[in-house]
Design a protein around this nucleic acid. Structure first.
Length: 703
DNA sequence: CGCAGTCATTTTTTT
DNA sequence: AATGACTGCG
């Protein structure tokens, strides 16, 4: 067992070994927390002889869950059925077993945000409300906030006088469809644990509970964690208040700030040594985050070398900024940096487009994390809607989605009629049959009958066909393939390709999970609706593009952060409140600390938004980074050589000084060194004096 | 009912 | 700029 602890520093080892009371690990960025968590789990299995399946680890994404599981298995050298999941998928499991207790059938449906918006749009339209004020996206987030207990429906009537009605209608519709939205999964999961019997059963069952990214848990998640561990205090949470970036989703920074109050005699261990970033990068991150007031306060340090100065590029326009990124990326690639070691971040998804164009122009292959997810593409959602209609007794949302897709002459008039029928009828097929009997026009009658036939056929084939063939069958038998050709003359091929890709995915899923028939599709559907952006990251040799939010928990040797402009980053919608700005700052902090070795920042003086150009001002956050850490990259000037190769290994090994101090010039970042010993000539960059060459003996080495 | 043309909205971040 | 919703005609 001792070898487990080798390579851990004192605090890390202490965190692994501590089991006497609830434990809060305040883990700074890059402080090796994943290591601590996995070692701790391995320690429980190997030394404390806990049963793996009685250990619950909660992560932020399903991908993180998979990785953690693999790492634990690597440590204990065998498969370890530790339950590693997100709060959402954990609740799905709970609900599959006990949903009847909260009044739902176990084969429930999970609505994603697109479904949710569709449903709300419909409700709002039915209530004849002003769609300008009551816009579905805004209402969706209000509803989410109400469900998460951020405020009550009644208090929101100041802004939306009929919000309560909408809220109730929405919930009623969910219930009728035996459906949960994302928030419901957590809420009903918690509800189940309020039942003393279940609470006892599960809290007895789990010998230990670990929660990662604790700073981003919300109230309900906290209550779930507490229900599982309050008697035994067998809980360890890991988080960093400086990385809380989801308050808009109900994440509650108090969960971490008041852990000691919630869990009496809690132990707190701080991990403040960073193993990831160069000194320059870490200094910048520390300097930025110090501007925040709402924090416990901790300061990261590192033994890593100073590294290269942070590059800053002031572009004339968004297009020029994108060119800077692509040109610089190209240089790095030439120097031997692997594409997968480079990431480009931005604040909003819409910024990706220009950057993509620039990368494509340079012939650099890239992948986008997030943005429009695979399962959110229209063709995929349409096919899935057919699957859902065949699978679920009643799924009004999906049924209405496909009623006239592909076009079969069933327009709004028919839709209205169907909705009326659906209010009383409790099955999709039943409703369609009534509908066809009520229709006058022969053509429409036949269209509905055909649709019923198709759905029933799909239902039969659910068990007969292999998953890939079933998806293919849906695409062909519904006329969807033809429809794609007609509606999308430009890109029908790639869309059709996507539907085949869906077929492959289900096929693989079925083989991996060893499931088939209804059970397979039910599991598949809940898995994909809960799949996150990071779950889609490929391991290929490509440059990665993503929003700053999506970068959480990841690291890259080279990181570009683009669009550092007032109103964009920090985002305009956060400027009203101090809390808002602090959250943006944490977001920037997260972005900076993803970089291991080289950080490049950029902004554009003019940016195209909503189709027209606007002048911008550079982000206040740039002023918060000490100037001596920054090297401004000028246009046209040939880019200064990247000192040697950029590889992860050299971060740890490099011994030559990279940050120096001079009596007159102050702190300087080393560019070149000629010779050795105290007579070596050092060329360094000083903030107010520029590049100077000085003999070593006049300098103090800082890093 | 479908279509073509017009209008309006989008861009905060996401399980 | 680009997508989707809406409108009025055939």
């Amino acid at each position: 067992m001792k070898e487990f602890l080798k390579g851990l520093n004192r605090e890390q080892a202490e965190a692994v070994l501590y089991f006497d009371s609830p434990l809060l690990i305040l883990a700074g960025a890059g402080s090796g927390k994943t290591r601590v968590i996995t070692y701790k789990i391995a320690y429980m299995i190997e030394e404390l002889k806990y049963k793996p399946e009685r250990i619950l680890a909660v992560t932020f994404t399903n991908k993180a869950a998979r990785e953690m599981k693999e790492r634990v298995e690597g440590l204990v050298g065998s498969s370890a059925p530790v339950i590693v999941s997100t709060f959402h998928s954990f609740c799905v499991r709970l609900l599959r077993a006990h949903s009847v207790r909260v009044g739902y059938q176990p084969n429930f449906l999970i609505l994603d945000s697109d479904d949710k918006k569709r449903l709300l749009r419909e409700i709002i339209r039915d209530m004849d409300l002003d769609s300008e004020l009551y816009n579905p996206s805004a209402i969706a987030s209000v509803i989410s906030n109400i469900k998460n207990g951020l405020y009550s429906a009644d208090s929101m009537t100041i802004y939306y006088d009929r919000i309560r009605e909408i809220f109730e209608a929405y919930n009623k519709r969910l219930k009728e469809n035996n459906a949960f939205d994302f928030d419901d999964l957590l809420i009903y999961g918690r509800e189940l644990l309020r039942d003393p019997e279940l609470q006892k059963r599960y809290s007895d069952f789990f010998q230990y509970v670990l929660i990662d990214e604790y700073q981003d848990t919300n109230r309900v998640q906290y209550e779930i964690a507490r229900a599982l561990t309050k008697e035994k205090g067998n809980i360890c949470v890991v988080g960093d208040e400086d990385q809380c970036i989801y308050t808009w989703r109900g994440a509650n920074i108090d969960n971490i700030l008041s852990f000691e109050k919630d869990f009496p005699d809690a132990k707190i261990i701080k991990l403040e040594k960073n193993y990831r970033c160069t000194k320059v990068i870490l200094d910048a991150a520390n300097a930025v985050i110090e501007n925040n007031k709402l924090r416990k306060g901790k300061k990261l340090y590192t033994d890593n070398p100073a590294g290269e100065p942070i590059r800053l590029y002031a572009a004339e326009s968004d297009i020029e900024e994108a060119n800077f990124v692509s040109k610089t990326v190209k240089q790095f690639l030439k120097k031997g940096v692997k594409p997968s070691e480079i990431a480009v971040f931005y604040r909003t998804n819409s910024q990706s487009r220009v950057i993509e164009d620039a990368l494509r122009k340079e012939g650099i292959s890239y992948q986008i994390v997030g943005g429009l997810k695979f399962y959110e593409r229209k063709e995929i959602k349409d096919i899935i809607a057919y699957l859902r209609v065949a699978l679920f007794e009643k799924d009004t949302i999906s049924l209405l989605r496909i009623l006239n897709v592909p076009k079969r002459g069933l327009g709004s008039a028919v839709e209205k009629k169907l909705k009326e029928i659906l209010e009383k009828e409790s099955s999709n097929i039943g409703a369609l049959k009534i509908l066809s009997s009520e229709l006058k026009m022969e053509k429409q009658k036949r269209a509905v009958e055909d649709l019923v036939g198709t759905i029933e056929e799909i239902r039969e084939k659910l068990h007969q066909l292999k998953p890939y063939d079933l998806i293919r069958f849906i695409v062909v038998s519904t006329g969807y393939e033809e429809y794609l050709r007609k509606e999308n003359p430009e890109d029908w091929e790639s869309r059709l390709e996507n539907t085949k890709e869906l077929g492959n995915t289900v096929q693989e899923f079925s083989e991996r999970e060893k499931l088939e028939g209804e059970e397979l599709y039910l599991e598949f559907l809940s898995t994909i609706t809960l799949s996150s952006d990071q779950d889609e990251i490929e391991e290929e040799e490509k440059v990665t593009l993503m929003t700053v939010h999506a970068s959480k928990g990841l690291e890259f040797p080279v990181v570009f952060i683009t669009g550092l402009e007032e109103g964009l980053f920090p985002h305009i919608k956060s400027l009203d409140t101090k809390e808002g700005i602090e959250e943006e700052r944490r977001l920037f902090y997260v972005a900076i600390t993803r970089a291991k070795r080289l950080l490049a920042l950029s902004y554009a003086k003019r940016r195209r938004t909503f189709g027209s150009y606007r002048d911008t001002r550079k982000s206040r956050f740039l002023e918060e980074i000490p100037p001596y850490l920054i090297k401004e990259v000028k246009k046209r000037e040939s880019q200064p050589a990247v000192t040697k190769e950029i590889s992860v290994k050299s971060v740890q090994k490099e011994k030559r000084p990279s940050l120096v101090f001079h009596k007159k010039f102050g702190k300087g970042v080393v560019r070149r060194i000629e010779g050795a010993g105290e007579n070596a000539k050092v060329t360094a960059f000083f903030a107010n004096y520029g590049e100077k060459t000085i003999v070593m003996k006049f300098l103090k080495v800082l890093g």
